[in-house]
Amino acid sequence: MTELSQESTQGTPVDDLMVRASRVRKSYGRTEVLRGIDFEVRPGEVACLIGPSGSGKSTFLRCINHLETIEGGRLWVDGQLVGYRQKGDKIYELRPRDVAAQRRRIGMVFQRFNLFSHMTVLQNITHAPVLVGGETKAAARAHALQLLERVGLTGRDKAYPGQLSGGQQQRVAIARALAMRPPLMLFDEPTSALDPELVGEVLEVMRDLARDGMTMVVVTHEMGFAKEVGDSVTFMDEGMVIESGAPSDVLDNPQHERTRSFLSKVL
């Protein structure tokens, strides 16, 4: 079904990288949205993806946990090919339940929170650990209360998402993703849907996570956050990585005209 590029069939990933993408391609119909993305994240690193809307950064993030399928190149998370299995020279599609198992090790936080609206905060957090993580209800509950404390929402465990502010919902969403104890967290514009005065509380939680050594890939428009917390910044435009490097280099001293013009608009 999926045609993968011939260039990079050579084998298993060599490294101790958390995320490694090599020439990742994807298109919707005839529109190419990802045109050969190379991208690396080491364990414990915070990698920020920036770029104009439509540049493919969110799509690429969704490829990392196989919410979107890639059509070319290779993508590994924690040494495992995402969504596929390689045997010799051949690539096999994974069964849905194996894909699900891979996703359990990758937390994701969405722009619009996507909390389960029919469940309480506590149920939102314990749902996956109990249903697919094999945890007992008691253990999951204890862990959930711990996580709620960590995101500053002690005592809101019985509330429904609809009763919380956007910032609180996003913090619950972070707790929900952390409940599976993933070694990698993906953030898809986590503060873009928030009122300006609520952005700070969410960024604070993310800062705290970064301090604890969580590996994070963050699609963001918060340049201040990228500069302060990011270990690397990758600027994407029109489905390609334009430039990538330390935040101080990319944000303060961009080498490419497109990066400069983008930054002049957002800063």
Binding site: A100, L131, V132, G133
Partner: peptide, 26 residues
Amino acid sequence: DEGQDDAAQALGLTGQQTMRTVTLPQ
């Protein structure tokens, strides 16, 4: 909302589990 499906899948629920515990109840 499709985002509910995304969130459930991202947590590692299978399609069936998503339908039964997230989509249908809503």
